[in-house]
Amino acid sequence: MEVVVQNLRIAFPSPSGPLEAVRGVSFTLGQEKLAIVGESGSGKSLTARAIMRLLPRAAMLSADALRFDGIDVLNADENAMRRIRGGRAGLVMQDPKYSLNPVMTAGAQIAEAWRAHRGGTRRQAREAAVDLLAQVQIRDPGAVADRYPHQLSGGMGQRVMIAMMLAPDPELLIADEPTSALDATVQAEILRLIEDLVQRRGMGLILISHDLPLVSHFCDRVLVMYAGRVVEECRAGELARAQHPYTRGLLECLPILSEKRRRLAVLRRDPSWAAA
């Protein structure tokens, strides 16, 4: 599996002409963990979702190349896209509350996802669902399978969501701020879980986040986006040597526990960052 993105552009119509939200983003992704980091409105979510062509209806998408394992996403028909979405690529979203069906048990939802891609009997699907719940480290998977989403805590809901995405055995997992609605302790557990699963199953991962220090612990490579462009790309371990003033600014404006900062540095946005 290889994802190739070249000169990706996403624009939205507005009364004063099309507004470009993503302006010429390029990257390739293999079996690795890639983080896309940026502030709200930087285009990070749109970029990742474009790979699955999961964009708002009004979005205008163009690219020199946009390929998922050799499949041309720009020109693929809906059937081909459906096989990618939720089949070969899974998407974990921010709040499990809104992405789980409230009137179906967790187990039934995972079983449905499993059957949709693998077929098999109800009994097999149910067994697979319990097995998947065990894989996302839920202690009593049989009992959790029979619970409804409102009976699950935030962290548990997110695990169910991940189990559901793993059901079709995807090759790529896109996690869009998967932990920002969760407590810090749960956040770390979920990210460790994702990291572990990705490693074990040999998947690719795109982790979208606004939290630069956080993702550096869980990813191999970081793309920093600003105003629809990638302003810096570096290995997660080399964030210390980040060159771009925006990346440096993001790191320096954080209050940190280990060191008293009397006054926080304020990010001064330079118009040239947004320019080509």
Binding site: A184, T185, A188, L212, P213, L214, S216, H217, G237, E238, L239, A240, R241, A242, L251, L254, I256, L257, S258, E259
Partner: peptide, 14 residues
């Protein structure tokens, strides 16, 4: 947890 997660190599570097 807070200290662990906020540490990037940026801070290590410092």
């Amino acid at each position: 947890l807070s200290v662990e997660l906020e540490e990037t190599d940026a801070q290590h570097g410092k």
